[in-house]
Simulated assay, not measured.
Amino acid sequence: MRAIWKGALTFGLVNVPVKVYSATEDHDVPLHQVHAADGGRIRYQRICEIDGEVVPYSEIDRAYDDGERTVILTKDDFASLPSERSREIDVVEFVPSEQVDLLTLDRAYYLEPDSASPKAYVLLRKTLEQTDRTAIVRFSLRQKTRLAALRVRGDVLVLQTLLWADEVREAAFPALDESVKISAKELEMSAALVDSFASDFDPEEFADEYQQELRTLIEAKLEKGDALDTSETFGAQDEGEAGGEVIDLMEALRASVEKSRASREGKTDAAASGSSSKKKADDKPAKKKAAKQEKAS
């Protein structure tokens, strides 16, 4: 695992240096979108709505729109915020563990001691276990101030982010306002049904059947030869660039737009010639698609 954040966990005068790791990962089969007609990959571009140009990620800022005005916030603006500069996980309070509503639990992270001696880390872990309390903490991660629950899982401290109170919707259903009578016999039979399903929970006994079937389907297609050569799905990209960052593609597209603009302005004959060559190259995929459709019909 790779640490995504490092700093210090603080409560009172105690300082516990820690590294933070994502505690969970996605096990879904990685899929991407393709053109159904020829299997060509679908790419997404960041287009400026004013000039129509493709914008590299390095030139993108964020903004707030109140419906009439737009406030642009630069990377320097975010860096100037106090919470963003903080590298501390501050304990706000210790609460009874049962008071933490499961509905508010969000992403989980492992904390690893990041010092020569893990004594302070172990002390906090044992204290939480002995008191049966959960630490409520504040910290900053990825330009957001987070509220989180710090608890114990085995020998490790786990940080689990919490939804803010206004992020949890109120459950108000008119049907539940009506008075409902449950007889003793109905409650007894329902309890008997629950008892018939009673068991100790073991997550290892459960599996994502959909993902298993999806992998089986993909393997079957591969065995049948029902697949394309991956290099054929990238169009004009060089095979060596196929797995590159999308931002590299954006840079290439932006350079092409600038070259085309220079050609239209008649700056040089060489630029005009380059633009003409690019247009012919751009026409190839369309001609290829038209030929396939004509052949199919």
Rank of each mutant, 00 (worst) to 15 (best):
E188Y: 05
A171D: 10
S86L: 04
R261W: 10
K6S: 15
E258C: 11
E49F: 01
V71Y: 09
W5D: 10
E205A: 08
D282N: 14
S199V: 01
P118E: 05
L249N: 08
K267A: 04
L111N: 08
K119N: 04
E129R: 10
A37M: 10
R264C: 13
A198M: 06
F173Y: 08
L81T: 02
E251Y: 11
K267Y: 10
V14C: 01
N15R: 12
V14K: 07
L150V: 07
G40R: 14
S179H: 09
L73F: 04
L103Q: 08
D51C: 15
A286E: 12
Q143L: 11
D283C: 04
T104S: 09
T74C: 02
A236D: 07
D202V: 05
P17W: 08
S275N: 09
F197I: 03
G7A: 04
P118A: 06
S256H: 03
V14T: 15
V137K: 02
G244N: 13
S199Y: 14
W164H: 14
V20L: 15
D195E: 15
R85Q: 12
D229R: 14
I218D: 05
P96L: 01
V71W: 10
A191R: 14
V122P: 00
G154T: 13
K75F: 03
G225V: 02
P203E: 11
K278V: 00
F173C: 06
D166Q: 12
D51Q: 10
V34S: 09
L176T: 14
I182A: 05
Y110K: 12
G67K: 06
G235C: 08
R43G: 08
Q212W: 02
E245A: 15
A36G: 02
A8V: 04
A79T: 03
V18I: 08
L176G: 07
R215G: 06
